[in-house]
């Protein structure tokens, strides 16, 4: 028991510094939700049901642009496809667990939790209770995200309605990319995606510009990867 608790609290401690930016992000999400005229229940419900900052904000953005459900759902799926990677990396460590564990842990496997637990797993391969680390980290994120969403909902009814928050959304995503700005290939991929989306915003029907741009950029990414692999 002691070991489990120790690992659990390790997870909580490890993820805490990453929670600082999550708070403003959650608040922004809550405020935007209210600003777009969603009910407080719906805004908060999304945080519980989806529990993924980027997905939720994409959902809101497409909703405000009047996209259809199908496009919205596929776009959210595209945004989330990076989680496939997380699962794939973790399957090595978690494959021995019971199904219940996998079901619970999948719910909280978000960017921040992945980042800290991945480092921990690599160092502590032999800890039998290592999944408690992910549990602690994940549910810390979960709690913080819910609290900051509520804060945003409360503030959303106070903050001026016309406050230009669409720009803040963009900035939030810029912030999520900061680690990739130093990689040349990533910048090419970013430019492709951005330019296709900007041109396609008006020309591609059904607000599908996010998916189209993402696929185009991923194709370029695939090409770049293949070229570099060949060189080596």
């Amino acid at each position: 028991m002691n070991d489990r608790l120790k690992t659990l609290s390790r997870g909580i401690i490890d993820v805490s510094p990453l929670m600082i930016p999550v708070v403003p992000f959650g608040i922004i999400y809550g405020v935007i939700g209210m600003e777009l005229g969603l009910s407080a229940y719906m805004t908060f419900g999304m945080s519980i049901i989806i529990f993924g900052g980027a997905s939720q904000i994409v959902l809101l953005q497409l909703f405000s642009g009047g996209a259809s459900s199908l496009v919205t759902i596929t776009s959210v799926g595209a945004v989330n496809s990076r989680h496939l990677l997380y699962g794939a990396v973790f399957s090595e460590y978690l494959s021995h667990l019971k199904l219940t564990w996998k079901i619970i842990l999948s719910y909280v496997l978000i960017d921040q939790a992945f980042a800290v637990s991945n480092t921990y797993f690599k160092k502590n391969k032999n800890n039998t209770f290592k999944h408690y680390h992910l549990l602690g980290a994940g549910f810390t994120c979960w709690t913080i995200w819910q609290i900051s969403t509520i804060l945003g909902i409360v503030l959303g009814s106070v903050v001026p309605e016309e406050l230009g928050l669409s720009f803040t959304i963009s900035l939030t995503f810029v912030a999520l990319l900061i680690n990739d700005f130093r990689k040349f290939k990533n910048i090419i991929v970013m430019l492709v995606s951005g330019i296709v989306a900007t041109i396609g915003y008006n020309t591609i029907p059904f607000q599908a510009y996010i998916i189209v741009a993402a696929i185009a950029a991923l194709l370029v990414a695939t090409l770049l990867t293949l070229i570099t692999l060949k060189k080596n």
């Binding site: 990677l85 963009s170 999520l176 430019l191 951005g194 989306a197 993402a214």
Partner: peptide, 12 residues
Amino acid sequence: YVPSAIFPAIIF
């Protein structure tokens, strides 16, 4: 590359 491929589509 997924984040780099998707987020700019939302940002730009």
